[in-house]
């Protein structure tokens, strides 16, 4: 996670408003430093860092809201929309590798179970009837393999990947709209940064 950029010139003996302006100006700038970088859906780290930057900005607008006479609620709502969208994208980016790791874990469990089953089979007495013996072996192998657990995980991975594409498209549409509607300039004006 990207560390917040240090804010210089804070004077604790002054009022809240001038200090809040300095802090907010830096955090707004931090959000916009990811513009361009997030144009590539493969830039997972930058998308995550932009979410954190939006989150910091949101909390600061909530904290310092009382210091400003302008209505910050519409800005807060927009920031929250962006944070949520990027959060949902991040969830997909985290969950897909986790589900893939779960598949590997299932394979590991399976190897142990099959080894144990074969070892038991070698030690135990086998039915004289070959068909019965084979059927029993198959049934035990199926139970040991946990093969029935895989399709659901593959389905979930496919769902998350599809969802990620939709969410990313929503994000880029929203981000373009914010820039088109001069979100940054309007927010900075409301905060008295110009």
């Amino acid at each position: 996670m990207a560390k917040p950029r240090p804010v210089t010139g804070i004077d604790p003996s002054r009022r809240m408003r001038p200090n809040a302006r300095r802090i907010l100006a830096t955090r707004i700038d931090e959000v916009y430093q990811y513009d361009g970088l997030v144009a590539d859906p493969a830039n997972i780290t930058q998308l995550h860092d932009m979410r954190i930057a939006f989150k910091r900005l949101r909390y600061l607008l909530e904290i310092f809201g009382t210091a400003f006479s302008g209505d910050l609620d519409p800005f807060l709502e927009q920031v929250k929309i962006m944070q949520d969208l990027l959060g949902d994208i991040h969830d997909c980016d985290v969950q897909v590798p986790m589900l893939e790791a779960h598949l590997s874990w299932l394979e590991g469990q399976e190897a142990v179970s099959v080894e144990r089953m074969l070892s038991n089979a070698r030690r135990g007495r086998q039915p004289a009837d070959e068909t019965i013996a084979l059927e029993r072996f198959r049934s035990r192998l199926d139970a040991a393999r946990r093969a029935d657990e895989r399709p659901g995980i593959h389905t979930l991975i496919a769902m998350r990947r599809a969802q990620r594409i939709v969410l990313y498209n929503q994000f880029t549409t929203e981000w373009r709209r914010l820039k088109h509607e001069r979100f940054r300039q309007r927010l900075e004006t409301t905060l008295g940064l110009h």
Binding site: L99, H102, D148, E149, P151, G152, I153, T155, L156
Partner: peptide, 20 residues
């Protein structure tokens, strides 16, 4: 929440994941 909407074939995997 997802389980009722899934095909029967997919359910054991999700139930196993929930257990884990």
């Amino acid at each position: 929440d997802l389980i009722p909407d899934l095909e029967l074939l997919d359910r054991p995997g999700i139930e196993g994941l929930i257990d884990r």
